[in-house]
Each structure stands twice: as structure tokens, then as C-alpha cells.
Design a protein around this nucleic acid. Structure first.
Lengths: 235, 235
DNA sequence: CTAAACATACTAACATGTTAGTTGACACAT
DNA sequence: ATGTGTCAACTAACATGTTAGTATGTTTAG
């Protein structure tokens, strides 16, 4: 038996700024969200320290933060694991995300400026190009940008951040959907309907268009529980 | 000059459970939320360690958590202060709270059971008694219970927790309103209207009744910026 | 052969020593 | 009197030593 010392697939800490603890947090979070550390992976403090070349203090702080966000499960005195998906947590996140995005789009419909409409229009043009090129990953990003822009247009700086925190698990699960992204076309169409309603300052229609659009995600995530059953908690 | 060694008004750590870090966090958080450590108070790690009889590690972890929640501001290498109120943060929290509570009440209107209606009715009876007794603090609690019960009735366990995190600053500011709580009467009336709509399973009316009710708070908080200007950040 | 008890190795949690950045006071030049 | 530079004291951030709880593998009793 060769003692296989598996290295964790972590990014480089040198390229980041901020305190050591923040950088360690960013590296771990990125690896978890992009599924390079799949659910169930055991994270050992000692190993992380060695690999990143830092001491245990900043690592402990980073893990505490990840634990608060629900990205890792800490078993006291024993082990730390990347948390598995839980359908109930995902359904909850869906509810929260819908609540926030609907409130945002309703408000933005009443306050949106010409410049903001131009920016959204430009983003949708980009989305169209990416769909035509079949660039799934690119579309994924532009899609997130579209939603984030609307959140930002509420004028509340922290709302985007709150949404990000709330729907962390959702974003993580979304990555699993990337390979089968034939939905981009429809998604684009739904985005256009939201924008169309915003152009007309029609809050009610914007709301229902967004509600329909967001409703598509959960029905695409639910089958994953069986496809990737090892990523989900036992029920 | 007598060297005044001001003790922080912290609760006792012995009475709590969980890891040391969790207990330290709970003690600090409680002192901040109840304004025993008013905004601007300087928290020194060394002092906290000495007073609670713990080492710096758990204190550091606790402060990191409070910092993430925005209850304290850490100035790197220098000092940690209890954060001051910021009207823009409060307005943001108001927006988020409204988004979540409206979504919740809308959903609950469609799913509420008889037992849940009974529980809410009982809570409102209690509220009425407390108003008649002029027990402001008691009403404050029953009021929070009412809202939390509705959140809990969504069936999403984490939603109540998320709301609590989101409207932390709001709760803190609400404490300042306690002395002048002649609004309890009206507040009770508004609660009754929400419950009435829930009884009829009328989601739309429940939503607008809740929206009206929540809208009252921000207009009562805004004047505080001038009354307690030392608790707010300079604008 | 099975199950329980014990020993061992390993981990997170906690305590404490060390480093480096910030602040504020005071001296000094303008 | 005022603005600037230096320095000392203090703080959070980081590193490392220590403790205690958990899991696992082995041994031993039934």
C-alpha cells in the first residue's frame, strides 16, 4: 500500500489580497463552490496549513466562517467535511432567493434609469452571443451578472451580498447543471421578458416574469438528487 | 487621575453551553443587542479574555463572527468597536425584512392549519393583555414571537434564522424605541388584521396588511438619527 | 465467533508566545 | 502657533505549544 498523500485542489494564496485568514477563506470557498472539493471531502487543518504555508490560526478562522455559511460541517474534536447538499436546504434557499429577487425587481421597475436599461440590454446582447457560440460557462456568468445587476439597481449595496449568502448552496448545485445546459435558449428568452417589463416600468409583470424564470431552476435541480446521490445527504 | 478600569457589562459565561467560542460570542452579542455596550464602545481582546477567564483564541473567533454580522467594526492591527447605526444599512435591512416577511405571509396564507391559527390567536390574546398592563418589554417579545411564528409556519427551518441575521441591526435599533412605546395599541390592531386575512386564507390581503404594518417601523426609526446622533455614523 | 473494553493515534479546541502594523504623544523645525 | 517627523506603547494578527475529545483497531471475555 503506497501512502497516497492526496493534495487538495486549492488555488494559490499568493494572488490574493487581504489578511491571511481572508485569503485562506477565499481559496477554500472557491474550491468548494466550484466542486473541486466535492461534498464529503475531508478537510484537515494540518494539511491545509502545510499546503498553503500558513499556521493554524488563519485556517481556523476561515473554517469557522465557512461553517457559519453551511459550506462545511465541523464534527467537534474530530473532522471537518465539505457539506453535502440537502434538498430541504435547497428548497429553502429557493424560497429566500425568490423572495429577494421578486422584491428587487418590483422596486427596480419603479426606479430604473435609462442608463440601467442600456446596461441590461447590453448584457442580454452578450447572452445571445454566448448562446449562439454554445459557450455554457460564459452564459452561466452572464446570467449571474444579469441577476446581480438588478439587485444592484435597488440601490442597496448589501442586498446583492445577502442574496449571495442566502443562495450559496443554490449556486453550488447549479454547477452540476452546467454540462446539460440546453436550457440557455429558454433562459435567455425569460430574461428578455423581464427586461421588457422593466422597460415599460411594469412592476407586476416584471415580478411574474421573474417568478416564472426562477421557478424553472428548482425543477431542474430536483432530479439531481438521484443522479448525484453521493453528493446529497441521506434522507 | 485614578486609573479607571471600566469593566464591560458582560453576562456570565458559565450559564451557557457549547464551545467556549460560542459562549463568548453569545455573551458579546447579547450585550451589544441590548445596548449595554452602546455603539462606539471599544472592545479589547485582552480585557475580554481577562474578564471572562478565557484565552484569546475563542475571543478571536467570536469577534470574527460578530464582524461578519456587522455588529462590530475591526480596525486592523488597532481596535475593535461596537458598530454604530447607519441609516442606509437600516433602510437596507428594512427592505430585506419586508421581502422575506411578505413572501412568508403569502405562502403561509395558502398552507396554514387550524392548530397554527389557534397558536397565533393565543399569541394575540397575550399581546392584548400585555398592552392593557402597559408591559412594553413583554409586548416587544410577544410581537417578535408573532412574526417568528409566521416565519416558522413556512415550514422552512432556516428562514427564521436568516431573517434574524438580516434584521439584526433593525432589532438593535428597535430597542431604542422601547421607552416611547405608545404604538403597541396600533401595532396590535395591525397584527389582528394580518391574522384575520390568514383566517380567510387571503394571501393578497395578508400581504398588504403585513406590508402596511412593517412600513410603520422605519418611519419611527428615522427620527432617532437626530435624537441619538452619537449612535449613528457621521453621514 | 461475537461483542465489549481498552489502548492508541489523530483531530479540533484552547492557551500562549511572537510579530508587525497603527495610533497618539512629544519634540523639533518652520 | 502650527505642521511634521520620530518614537514608544498598544493592539490585532499570526505562529506554535498543549489539552481533551473522538474514532478506530486490537485484544480479550463471553
Amino acid at each position: 500500500m503506497t501512502e497516497e498523500l492526496e493534495k487538495l485542489p486549492l488555488g494559490d494564496i499568493e494572488t490574493l489580497t487581504g489578511s491571511l485568514a481572508q485569503r485562506v477563506y477565499a481559496v477554500l470557498r472557491e474550491a468548494i463552490l466550484h466542486m473541486r472539493c466535492p461534498p464529503g471531502t475531508v478537510l484537515r487543518k494540518g494539511q491545509i496549513c502545510e499546503q498553503l504555508g500558513v499556521s493554524r490560526s488563519p485556517v481556523a478562522e476561515a473554517i469557522a466562517k465557512l461553517s457559519a455559511e453551511g459550506l462545511v460541517d465541523v464534527v467537534p474534536q474530530s473532522a471537518t467535511r465539505v457539506s453535502r447538499f440537502s434538498m430541504s436546504v435547497i428548497r429553502e434557499a429557493t424560497f429566500l432567493r425568490e423572495a429577494l429577487e421578486l422584491a428587487a425587481v418590483e422596486r427596480v421597475a419603479q426606479t430604473i434609469t435609462e442608463e440601467q436599461l442600456v446596461a441590461l440590454t447590453r448584457n442580454l446582447k452578450l447572452q445571445r452571443l454566448l448562446v449562439e457560440d454554445g459557450d455554457h460557462a460564459g452564459f452561466f456568468e452572464a446570467d449571474e451578472d444579469f441577476h446581480n445587476m438588478i439587485m444592484a439597481f435597488t440601490g442597496y449595496q448589501g442586498v446583492t451580498r445577502t442574496l449571495a449568502g442566502v443562495s450559496l448552496q443554490l449556486s453550488r448545485a447549479r454547477i452540476l447543471l452546467l454540462p446539460s445546459s440546453d436550457r440557455a435558449q429558454e433562459s435567455l428568452r425569460e430574461h428578455e421578458e423581464v427586461l421588457e417589463a422593466l422597460r415599460r416600468r411594469d412592476a407586476e409583470t416584471a415580478r411574474s416574469a421573474m417568478r416564472f424564470h426562477l421557478g424553472q431552476l428548482i425543477s431542474r435541480i430536483e432530479p439531481l438528487e438521484h443522479v448525484h446521490s453521493d453528493f446529497f445527504v441521506a434522507q
